[in-house]
């Protein structure tokens, strides 16, 4: 059973540019994933407004009743977030690793248009490998 249920990548304006499902009940359709991603983008921004002290950079971990949502925001505003089982450790380092894959296989691809949906075969392959096949070894890095 996969510990990670789904992965989203949202660009800096709240548009979903990548979505991958790793087995959750009741798969969402494309419209729902787009809505959920932009809703998350707004909630992330509102949480910064409500901070009691300055320097808040948005939600990092949301603990729901049946899942945990980990979010990593890169310096350029691209958000990576993953839905996983409650209590899963080291998703943060996995998200940072995925950010590395994104810079290597997506941003360095000359045919990729920035802020547009990601359609890069090598990114898909490497992502699947790192998430599903060898999770333990990856997290050991």
């Amino acid at each position: 059973m996969a510990a990670i249920n789904s992965l989203y990548i949202v660009n800096k304006s709240g548009g979903l540019i990548y979505y991958k499902d790793y087995g959750s009940a009741g798969r969402m359709d494309t419209n729902d994933t787009l809505r959920v991603a932009s809703l998350w983008h707004s909630m992330h921004a509102i949480s910064q407004q409500l901070s009691p002290v300055s320097g808040c950079s948005g939600i990092e971990l949301l603990q729901a009743d049946t899942f945990d949502l980990h979010c990593f925001q890169s310096l350029t505003g691209t958000k990576f977030f993953a839905v996983c089982e409650p209590g899963t450790q080291q998703i943060e380092s996995l998200l940072k690793f995925i950010y590395g894959l994104y810079t290597d296989y997506v941003l360095k691809n000359p045919f990729y248009e920035i802020e547009m949906p990601i359609r890069c075969e090598l990114f898909d392959i490497n992502l699947t490998q790192s998430v599903q096949k060898d999770r333990v070894a990856l997290l050991g890095q």
């Binding site: 009691p52 300055s54 808040c56 950079s57 939600i59 971990l61 949301l62 009743d65």
Partner: peptide, 8 residues
């Protein structure tokens, strides 16, 4: 949900 956490 029961909680969320930011850096601050």
């Amino acid at each position: 949900f029961h909680s969320f956490r930011t850096n601050t």
